[in-house]
């Protein structure tokens, strides 16, 4: 099976895919940012931003005339934060494009997605601002909290499909129809996945590491101009990656782009709807919550994986 895939792909095709996948991911991610802000606005009975608002923000930030750098690692951190996601997108199969998904698989993707966070953490560290360091310490703690249910889900899905290859997981779901979707087969895992998604996107009630009024947006405290722009780009990628990954694991991926995007936008809407009606948890409460409910649901879900 695998060896066939290895030989079938021609180099030019893969290069085109490697270029296209991040670009599409970025554009879709921007729309998702808009979607998220629109939902927030509607929940608060506002009109919300215009259609191209995320794009305006990014272009403006990259076009700033003066901006501060706190050192080489500050710069490299932002490069790692963007570059890590650019690379991660190629591991995430989408309709018509598999990129290098067969060479990595879901475990590799999970760990590759930590590279941008590590880059950001390094960059923030160099800023020498305690607000930023506190933000990173909280963000890493949150990661420790939500990644445990997340790996339980990854394990459950990979065990169910007997492979870590995302292409294979999606194909299996698509061939046997809706009844074989992860959400139907393992509803408990899908439920735990939603909770994890909320934490992974850092949305309320799990946004203690941003805490604007307390630690001045934590990691973003010293980011100006293109540094902040880089983080906006990272956020767009993050939304896209989380949504598409969820769709691939539980909703059968997409046979067409329309299907994939429709499902992904539904998936990102859920955390947003929850987010804008909640205050936030303290760090230790966040950890306790994640280690209790999603973990329990996840373990129960894996127990039912046949």
């Amino acid at each position: 099976m695998d060896t066939q895939i290895f030989t079938e792909i021609s180099l030019s095709e893969i290069l085109v895919e490697l270029l296209l996948m991040p670009v599409i991911a970025f554009l879709v991610g921007l729309v998702m940012v808009l979607w998220m802000r629109k939902i927030g606005a509607r929940v608060q009975r506002r009109i919300g931003p215009p259609l191209f608002q995320p794009l305006y923000d990014v272009v403006k930030l990259f076009g700033k005339k003066t901006q501060v750098s706190h050192g080489v690692v500050h710069d490299i951190g932002i490069v790692m934060a963007m570059g890590g996601y650019i690379a991660a997108e190629t591991l995430l199969p989408v309709p018509g494009m598999n990129g290098i998904a067969v060479y990595g698989g879901i475990i590799t993707l999970t760990y590759l997605m930590m590279i941008p966070s590590l880059g950001l953490a390094l960059g923030v560290g160099q800023c020498a601002n305690p607000n930023g360091s506190i933000g990173i310490s909280r963000a890493l703690t949150a990661m420790l909290a939500y990644d445990i249910p997340f790996v339980i889900i990854v394990f459950g899905v990979a065990f169910h499909h007997e492979t870590t290859n995302l292409v294979e997981i999606i194909t299996q779901q698509q061939q046997a129809g809706i009844a074989s979707w992860g959400a139907v087969q393992n509803p408990l895992l899908a439920l735990a996945g939603l909770a994890t998604l909320q934490g992974m996107l850092g949305k309320q009630p799990f946004e203690i590491y941003i805490a604007p009024a307390e630690i001045a947006t934590g990691p973003m405290v010293e980011m100006s101009g293109k540094y902040l722009g880089g983080l906006f780009v990272m956020q767009a990628f993050q939304l896209y990656t989380a949504a598409v990954l969820y769709v691939s694991l539980f909703l059968g991926g997409g046979e067409s782009w329309f299907e994939l995007l429709a499902k992904s936008f539904v998936v990102v809407s859920i955390p947003m709807m929850i987010a804008f009606v909640f205050p936030r948890y303290r760090t230790e409460d966040l950890v306790r919550l994640f280690w209790k409910w999603p973990v329990m649901i996840g373990l129960l879900g894996v127990a039912f994986v046949g």
């Binding site: 901006q67 790692m80 880089g230």
Partner: peptide, 27 residues
């Protein structure tokens, strides 16, 4: 392959960061 893609990702990001973005000043 994974690392090659990762490093090219860093490369693309560096291009965007250093050439598309404006000048910055070390403070």
């Amino acid at each position: 392959i994974v690392s090659m893609v990762l490093f090219s990702g860093f490369g693309v990001a560096a291009l965007i960061f250093y050439f598309v973005g404006g000048k910055s000043k070390r403070v």
